[in-house]
Nucleic acid binder design. Structure first.
Length: 945
RNA sequence: GCCCAGAUGGUGGAAUUGGUAGACACGAGGGACUUAAAAUCCCUUGACCAUUGCGGUCGUACGGGUUCGAGUCCCGUUCCGGGCACCA
């Protein structure tokens, strides 16, 4: 009997031995070059790991193992992003402490991860919710609080330097409260009274990236704008560095582009407008300084502070009403319909170029948060201004030759400028732009504005400061207490400030965040410890902040912590940070493009300014694995009944208004209901099984089609517990083994592409491993490998594979290396290869992809050490040289035949070889050769007349 | 609306980046072994025509172009995916 590929036994054995032997433990070693591979750590959700999670982990594990085989000291850690909303909401529902569910989920994740055979160094595991870890999140927050951004140096500086500067300039107030308020405008972590995204349903504020299409990313609840006092991070200070850094890192163009959009750099001009019959003036921002002569009105954002100031008495009522209307609109409403609305303020602004009086309007199409919250409107060359002008009957003055603005505005930044007065013709302005291109005109106006001190050149960024506090329980507490209303940091040596226990995870009855339920939550400044709240009125006892930090706090610097996870003196020691530098390869989903990947770049840049991080950019190369989607299945319940109708019996209508399909059965409407993916095979529902699934189906009536089947409707969607389409990897590991799972996930397609999970092809990968296994054993189950010299064919097969796989791994094209393995295995089987030398290298090549089988075979070949410590095979061209390449040869695009060339043949030799061949001579006879084209080692074309 | 990436057999996807399109796998069909099934192995599998052999024609979303040669480069169109979106 041939020896069977018993993957269960092999995989269990090596999981045990790898742990016992500490195969994947890694230490800093200055004599070996480092390589840092990192996955975005998972949030341990209650649904457990699904087949989408390991996609990125497998890809990076392959790379990590490959780098190790190449002699690098590879850091490949894993941990958990353990703070999050689901655990808290579960806690609210059940009263169970979020820590308990989180830890249970972590244990489950760990168990699932262990089955897949990753080379993670689990001694370095981090959990964001553990005090040893969030100690350093709190520490970094305090450092940000105590820093400001120096515009000239373009880096963070200690706040003390700013105080020195204020003192030197004589503007340092003596009052403590005033000092605090002044510094608050500069600190990198600061308390700000700003418009925030408030989600009433979640009872918390959200960051911009947590709001998608005007509703909360988690839950999809409405979000409204509200002015609140919140902790913020001055991410916007780093806008230019965040933008510049993109040019130094190896990320996909689309992610870089997304970040560039998010940062939204815009070069323009700020111009000051005086208000007629008043001492007031205000500044506007424009990118189209060339259109100064086309301004016909001005617009203020309804939230702007100028509104109050510039509204005249007779317009006061109308303006108040309009502002009230705008406030009543949610973010989503404002996004969905761009209604043209507005009100006249009663005031006029004087155009500094023309002296004309332009009416000042107030409209919601101008945003308070961008630029100065006020614009000059040029209806001829801006479509929004145009719509507004048409609606309110305001004049439109075109400024570009040939621009027809009778139907729509001409927004393009091109053309020749006209309609500006000749130089010196107005008493206000001796600038003429006529005849210039738009680009020249912008530049000329910028110069003019700067010279005449009418304003200044300005760069604006769309990037906003990040709202950094949340009204929730399950997050890092702020190490802050309020001393007479002044936010004060808990001394660094008293960190971490541990999350207090509470009996209820909901807000308090007085509307305080959940931490308001904690009784022992006050800071005794003298004793330097947490004390009971009831002592607050006593001397030196002050209330502690009730907000907690958002989800991205803990995930912003975790890659630094992996370098030195047990250090209780620092986030990371200088030695460890100097050795590991930054992450060489980061793998994760592209959905974090505007969240985590901006925040951690910001966070790292700050720590770089502090000297803690050694690189300005945290993640040198980024690979975005695609999402593995699930097949959701729907059954259809007739409205108001407990009857379910087979999908093929339904009539489908598209509802244009609701933008979705509606379903009817004999005139009765049916609603789709999710059915668990495990109840369905193909598109046929297992009716018996679904009856057992939930009570809802137990006594349901199923209306089947003619063949007696219940057909479900299927859709490809993101895998999620609530869609009942989650496929977990455990079953695959059980039935096929982890090595097959690993191969198959890579074989599915390019790593960066999203694709639905489909087990249909998995047998191919399993068969390959079985064939590979059988290469090593004879019919009696004895090792078939001998110390014999490899044949030329053996070496050719091997080196073809080395070349292909090495090149593939370097560019993460794993899906094409697996076919190469299959071909090589088939070839070696046919060649009946028995050479130890060849077989051993085959094993090493396979080791990154299928580590269990490789380890087993490596030991079967007589090695005592792990295959992880072998050396990656070196490709040698000489084993391929004796082969020939067959190529097509074409005469005048008509005649074609084949000829063999040596792969290193020179173009001239190739042409001569073709021309002198008997076959070619027949065709060439009586023709003139017009030209010959030869591609080195590839192809020859001969054009004849 | 703007920006970015795509479109290749029944399916997932290859194609040395301008050089024999469809590797490899799945599925399907046929065959071998077997009492039978599973497993395994072999053959066929883009379409059409010819199949007595050779073969031939058309084919990479659509329409043009550059080139001896285009899935690949250029221009235009359609469709799908992603990002941003009153950002002045």
């Amino acid at each position: 009997m041939a020896k069977e590929y018993n993957f269960r036994e092999i995989e269990q054995k090596w999981h045990r031995l790898w742990t016992e032997l500490g195969t994947y433990r890694v230490k800093e070693d200055a004599s070996v070059p480092k390589y840092y591979v990192l996955n975005m750590f998972p949030y341990p959700s209650g649904a457990g790991l699904h087949v989408g999670h390991p996609l990125g982990y497998i890809a990076s594990d392959i790379y990590a193992r490959y780098k190790r085989l190449q002699g690098f000291n590879v850091l490949n850690p894993m941990g958990y992003d353990a703070y999050g909303l689901p655990a808290e909401q579960y806690a609210i529902k059940t009263g169970q402490h979020p820590e308990k569910t989180t830890f249970a989920n972590i244990d489950r994740y760990r168990e699932q991860l262990d089955k897949i055979g990753f080379s993670f160094d689990w001694d370095r595991e981090v959990r964001t919710c553990s005090p040893d870890y969030y100690h350093w999140t709190q520490w970094a927050f305090q450092k940000m609080f105590n820093s400001y951004f120096d515009e000239e140096l373009q880096k963070a500086q200690p706040i003390e330097k700013l105080i020195e500067k204020f003192k030197a300039e004589g503007c340092w107030p003596s009052d403590e409260k005033e000092q605090s308020d002044l510094l608050m405008q500069y600190r990198l972590a600061f308390l700000g009274e700003t418009m925030v995204n408030w989600c009433p349903k979640l009872g918390t504020v959200l960051a911009n990236d947590e709001v998608v299409n005007g509703v909360s990313e988690r839950g999809g609840y409405p979000v409204e704008q509200k002015k609140m006092r919140q902790w913020c991070l001055r991410v916007s200070a780093y806008a230019q560095r965040l933008l510049d850094g993109l040019d130094t890192i190896d990320w996909s163009d689309s992610i870089k582009e997304t970040q560039r959009n998010w940062i939204g750099r815009s070069e323009g001009t700020e111009v000051e407008f005086r208000v007629a019959d008043s001492d007031a003036s205000f500044t506007i921002f424009t990118t189209r300084a060339d259109t100064m002569f086309g301004v016909t009105f001005m617009v203020l954002a309804p939230e702007s502070e100028l509104v109050e100031q510039l509204t005249t008495e007779d317009q006061r009522e109308a303006v108040a009403e309009y502002v009230k209307y705008v406030k009543g609109r949610t973010e989503r409403e404002r996004m969905i319909d761009h209604k043209v609305t507005g009100v006249f303020s009663g005031s006029y602004a004087i155009n500094p170029f023309t002296g004309e009086k332009n009416p000042i309007w107030i409209s919601e199409y101008v945003l308070a948060g961008y630029g100065t919250g006020a614009i000059m409107a040029v209806p001829a060359h801006d479509s929004r201004d145009y719509a507004f002008a048409k609606h309110f009957n305001l004049p439109i003055v075109p400024l570009i030759e040939g621009a027809d603005v009778s139907e729509q505005s001409y927004d393009a930044k091109e053309g020749i400028v006209c309609n500006s007065p000749a130089a010196g013709k107005t008493p206000y302005c001796d600038l003429s732009l006529n005849g210039l291109t738009v680009k020249e005109a912008i530049a000329a106006t910028k110069r003019y504005v700067t010279e005449k001190k009418l304003g200044r050149v300005k760069v604006n960024y769309r990037l906003r400061d990040a709202i950094f506090s949340r009204q929730r329980y399950w997050g890092e507490p702020f190490p802050v207490y309020y001393k007479n209303g002044i936010p004060t940091m808990i001394p660094e040596e008293c960190l971490p400030l541990e999350l207090p226990q509470v009996d209820k995870f909901l807000p308090t009855e007085t509307g305080e965040p959940p931490l308001g339920n904690a009784q022992k939550w006050a800071w005794d400044e003298a004793a330097r410890q947490i004390v009971d709240k009831s002592l607050i009125d006593e001397k030196n006892v002050f209330p502690i902040e009730l907000y907690t930090m958002p989800g991205f706090a803990g995930s912003s610097a975790y890659y630094l912590r992996y370098m030195d996870p047990h250090n209780d003196k620092a986030l990371v020691s200088d030695e460890a940070a100097s050795y590991w530098q930054n992450v060489d390869l980061y793998v994760g989903g592209s959905e974090h493009a505007t969240g985590h990947l901006i925040y951690s770049r910001f966070w790292n840049k700050f720590l770089f300014d502090l000297g803690v991080s050694k690189k300005d950019e945290p993640f040198q190369k980024l690979i975005n694995q695609g999402m593995i989607q699930g097949w959701s299945s729907f059954v259809f319940r007739l409205r108001g009944t407990n009857k379910f109708v087979s999908y093929d019996l339904l009539e489908v209508q598209y509802d244009n208004e609701a933008k979705k399909n509606r379903y009817f059965y004999q005139g009765q409407e049916a609603d789709p209901v999710y059915a668990d993916i495990s109840m369905v095979s193909g598109n046929v529902l297992n009716v018996e099984k679904i009856r057992e699934w939930t009570i809802e189906f137990r006594n349901a009536e199923f209306i089947l089609n003619e063949s007696g089947q219940y057909i479900v409707n299927q859709a490809i969607e993101k895998m999620s517990k609530s869609k009942y389409n989650v496929v977990n990897p455990d079953d695959i590991c059980e039935n096929y083994g982890a090595d097959t799972l690993r191969l198959y996930e890579m074989f599915l397609g390019p790593i960066e592409q999203s694709k639905p999970w489909d087990v249909a092809g998995i047998d191919g990968c399993f068969r390959f491993l079985k064939k590979f296994w059988l290469l090593f054993w004879d019919k009696n189950g004895e090792l078939a490998v001998k110390d014999e010299k490899p044949s030329a064919d053996n070496l050719k097969t091997l080196h073809k594979l080395i070349k292909k796989v090495t090149a593939d791994i370097e560019v993460f094209s794993y899906n094409t290396s697996i076919p190469a393995f299959m071909v090589a295995t088939t070839e070696l089987t046919q060649q009946q290869c028995r050479s130890r030398e060849v077989m051993e290298q085959m094993v090493i090549l396979l080791a990154p992809f299928a580590p269990h089988i490789a380890e087993e075979l490596y030991h079967a070949l007589g090695h005592e050490t792990s295959v992880c410590d072998a050396r990656w095979p070196q490709f040698d061209e000489k084993f391929l040289v004796e082969s020939t390449v067959t190529l097509g040869v074409q005469f005048n695009g008509k005649v074609r035949f084949s000829m063999a060339f040596a792969p290193d043949a020179k173009p001239d030799e190739m042409v001569a070889q073709v021309v002198n061949s008997e076959e070619a001579k027949r065709f060439l006879e009586g023709h003139d050769i017009v030209k010959t084209i030869a591609v080195p080692g590839r192809i020859v074309n001969i054009v004849i007349k």
